[in-house]
Design a protein around this nucleic acid. Structure first.
Length: 465
DNA sequence: TGACGAGGAGTGGATGGCTC
DNA sequence: GAGCCATCCACTCCTCGTCA
């Protein structure tokens, strides 16, 4: 049996154009040249592995440890005796902070809603001994403490990699409530649809200009978006506010898409909502009579733009084949009869939040390609034959080639009555010929109106009308 | 009361600099 | 070149404030 495993996360850092754009400094050049980066990245990776083995501890898990809501750890407000000196370079001394209120349990809406781990808080594995001085700086009134805290004290993240010098143990308050931040909502963002659309379009523009790393815009991309957004809208929003908005849209999009995929439903191309046959809604109505649909499953606005932005993330660049488990009857998630398409992977989609997280970490996917029962366990030739058969079967299930897709597009256009040589026909063929994404989306649409709308949208998008 | 936005905490990976 | 540590970066999760 050959197990198809999800794509491996590259140990190499993705190239960040912003680094190279900063100037011809040596670090920038090293970052810009993968061959130079490799020289350090691989030794570091092997070093990390050796460290883990030497310390007889497992490698860092890829998922965070969750605890019950009531176990959320917060630190005590009292100042540790060994407080670090105040940060340098901050002109205005922070105002005195009133003493913290007595500790209490916080039971927010999430805690109330969380009957189990799904609503739990995220807690560091080593949070107890790790008071972050960033937190202390915050309480001293330093609003923008992150960079300074980063540069002066070990953070939890850094201490996890630095095995020799854990930060000093400090007293903690397990139920400390963060003191109220002063109400400074003067520049509160108010996102209406046109503004959101402008933001998305600018993000897509930056993505097309390759100012895009794994999952998001690069720093340079954000700078560009920020400046252009200000120029276009006149709104004086900060970069963080733009990032927050995009983050929320992204979460909405993945949540909605996860629901769409995991529930075997479809997308109503007319309304942007979830489509299904009548029997599904009847069943659903019985199941959910007492509860309404949560907001997170509502289709987010500008689905097409979001799909353009997040619909094809780099972790979906394909899957790898790895041979293994031939001898054992490895449990399989799918067989020839129930083969699951990669795009419809329901595995990571248990919830909106989880799915958004799963998307970010190139989830491991396992698919089985069942092979016939082996006649002889030590027959290498038989193994090779099985392997070849499996690959051949997979080839039969592969996606159609670009040429085949283009031919299919031609047929559909003909069926839709789009005259060859017309402007619309030319636009459609040009767009489909240029982009596999455009082609795939075009072929996936069910109605003529949706197809024409898509071509029109794609054409305008590419030519910035 | 729920939706939404802001912001902090913490995570994981990559890389730079220093020392041996 | 390896080991160690610090730093940077982008991300998710969570809490809290505001507002309709």
């Amino acid at each position: 049996m050959i197990r198809r495993r999800g794509s491996l996360r590259s140990p190499l850092r993705p190239f960040r154009p912003v680094c190279a754009a900063g100037g011809p400094s040596a670090p920038a050049l090293r970052r810009a040249r993968p061959s130079l980066r490799r020289s350090r990245a691989l030794p570091h990776a092997s070093r990390s592995l050796r460290r883990s083995l030497a310390a007889s501890r497992p490698l860092r898990p890829s998922v965070r440890i969750r605890r019950r809501p009531s176990l959320r750890i917060r630190r005590r407000g009292s100042e540790p005796a060994h407080a670090l000196p105040p940060p340098v370079g901050r002109p205005d001394p922070p105002p005195p902070v009133p003493p913290d209120p007595p500790p209490r349990l916080r039971a927010g809406p999430r805690a109330a809603a969380a009957g189990g781990p799904s609503g739990g808080r995220t807690v560091s594995r080593a949070v107890a001994p790790c008071i972050t001085s960033a937190h202390r700086l915050e309480e001293e009134g330093c609003k923008d403490h992150k960079s300074e805290a980063h540069s002066k004290v070990p953070t939890l993240a850094s201490s996890s990699t630095g095995s020799c010098s854990p930060p000093p143990v400090c007293p903690y308050n397990f139920r400390h409530k963060r003191h109220k931040a002063p109400a400074k909502m003067n520049n509160r963002a108010s996102w209406d649809e046109p503004t959101t659309k402008i933001l998305l379009e600018m993000c897509i523009e930056q993505k097309n200009q390759l100012n895009w790393s794994d999952r998001c815009l690069t720093k340079l991309g954000w700078r560009n978006v920020h400046s252009r957004f200000r120029a276009a809208t006149g709104l004086q929003l900060g970069m963080k506010q733009l990032q927050n908005k995009l983050n929320n849209l992204r979460r909405q999009f993945f949540g909605w898409r996860a629901l769409e995929n995991s529930s075997s439903l479809g997308r109503d191309t007319q309304t942007g909502g979830v489509s299904a046959d009548a029997t599904y809604w009847e069943q659903e109505q019985q199941d959910t009579q007492a509860r309404s649909q949560p907001h997170s499953v509502k289709p987010p606005p500008f689905l097409d733009l979001l799909f353009e932005l997040f619909g094809h993330e780099p972790q979906d660049r394909g899957t790898l084949l790895s041979a293994g488990g031939i001898r054992e009857g490895t449990p399989s998630m799918g067989t020839e009869g129930n083969f699951v398409d990669l795009e419809d992977d329901p595995a990571p989609a248990t919830s909106a939040r989880f799915s958004a997280r799963a998307k970010s970490k190139r989830p491991v996917r396992e698919y089985s390609v069942d092979s016939p029962t082996k006649k002889r366990s030590d027959n290498l030739e038989q193994y090779i034959r099985d392997l070849s058969d499996s690959v051949a079967k997979r080839s039969l299930l592969r996606a159609p080639s670009a040429h085949e897709q283009l031919n299919r597009c031609l047929e559909i256009l003909k069926e839709d009555g789009i005259e060859q040589g017309s402007e619309l026909h030319n636009q459609a063929m040009f767009s489909c010929g240029q982009s596999s994404d455009c082609r795939t989306t075009f072929l996936g649409l069910d109605t003529k109106a949706a197809r024409l709308s898509w071509i029109n949208f794609y054409w305008n998008m590419m030519h910035k009308k």
